[in-house]
Design a protein around this nucleic acid. Structure first.
Lengths: 136, 136
DNA sequence: TATTGTTATACTCTATAACTATA
DNA sequence: TATAGTTATAGAGTATAACAATA
């Protein structure tokens, strides 16, 4: 397809991200995970010291939007909350959550291999550092 | 900030795209344009032969979502519709639309220069080709 | 038959404001 | 005072279904 905007970095970045998100969503659907939920599982891992606010700060998700996200994961039996003090609670993966995390890890790693395989080999190593330079 | 997910290509791509979109939205706000609207202006240019369906196919926007998008641009005086045949109409930029297009072009080109300046110089040339390989 | 344009609708993601309770 | 957690709400963006009119 002829697309005169494809030379523009911002446009190419948006289209690439949209395509990636759509495909990743489809690959996570069989294990009933959304992308944000998989991110939480992979970030928290086997730690037991991250609050909802901590997770939100790392993943750039507002506190207010963490509440329904974690409520859904709680209802799905993936996480529990462990009191830290009177106002904070740690998000901790359940046994089911740890299993789901391993599945999500396998799916995302295979997905990332497939993604990078589409990139010309001489441009592969530079891609992730270049992307991270745009926001970190 | 320590972010163990930053090494993952999909995650880095999403974060970079989100940061880019947020900044571009802010830069387009002063001329009262959303990103999708600026994309339409830049794509159509001074052509007079693209229908709403054509534009949607190039930009990957559903026909049903083109209707309110173009209605808004029509109401803002940026475009008009020129009948092609009994069922198709070309989207044509008005004089105001052409002015806004030049402004959007200037803003986006400066934005893209600023974006690329953040990327280590040895990784710049490979970025856009690598991104386009992920979706084209 | 396929395509164009449109309306209606619903879902997701995101952003802000406001509130309570605790550090 | 600042932070954690929560609720409510509104705005975008996006997806599907359905319809009339025309190629």
């Amino acid at each position: 397809m002829d697309d005169p905007l494809a030379l523009r970095p911002g446009y190419a970045l948006r289209r690439a991200a949209n395509a990636m998100m759509g495909e990743l969503s489809a690959r996570l659907a069989p294990i009933d995970l959304r992308i944000a939920e998989a991110s939480v599982l992979l970030l928290v891992g086997d730690r037991a010291d991250m609050t909802a606010s901590d997770i939100g700060r790392v993943l750039d998700i507002q506190r207010a939007n963490m509440a329904p996200l974690l409520a859904r994961m709680d209802a799905a039996g993936l996480i529990v909350r462990a009191p830290i003090d009177g106002k904070s609670r740690a998000v901790v993966l359940t046994a089911d959550g740890l299993v789901r995390r391993r599945q999500a890890d396998a799916i995302t790693q295979e997905f990332e291999r497939d993604l990078m395989a589409r990139v010309p080999i001489d441009k592969r190593d530079g891609l992730v550092p270049a992307l991270n330079a745009l926001w970190r």
